[in-house]
Amino acid sequence: MGLLDKEFNDGNIVITKTEDLLNWARLSSLWQLTFGLACCAIEMMAASASHYDLDRFGIMPRPSPRQADVIIVSGTVTLKMASRVKRLYEQMPDPKYVVSMGSCSNSGGPYWNYGYHVLKGVDRVIPVDVFVPGCPPRPEALIEGLLKLQEKIRHEKLTKQTA
């Protein structure tokens, strides 16, 4: 991963690139916005709880968009909720990331055709980094999605935001 290549042999000095350091810092403390919309939120809570323990990846819930790094859109986004989701996203400070969790949030899910009130994919209102499929996805799937997001952040460039 680049950061600890030189280890600590030289009197507690670590030599690394700024880019790697920043990326490492960002991906190691992804604070997720405490925000759930439907049944997917139950799985998200299970992922945060002791059995799956998202905290071991530095991912922990933060109940304020102003101090959150990632928003996990967990559940059915209704048209009424879409503007609120967008506002929450806009309130988050950069750099910010979006994980779309579950079929509803990805594409409308079971409401894709006859759901008169459902937004057919949260990417119609905010930019999504990782889509996690499932209905709902198991906590393992969500963790996989978050690890993918970490992978994405690890290869970010200072000059060009890719995630």
């Binding site: 503007s83 409308g108 055709n113 209102v125």
Partner: peptide, 19 residues
Amino acid sequence: PLRKDYVDPEYYNGIKIPY
């Protein structure tokens, strides 16, 4: 929306509704 002849509008506040 629950009337049998209801048709989705194309847009709601600039958000496209149909799939």
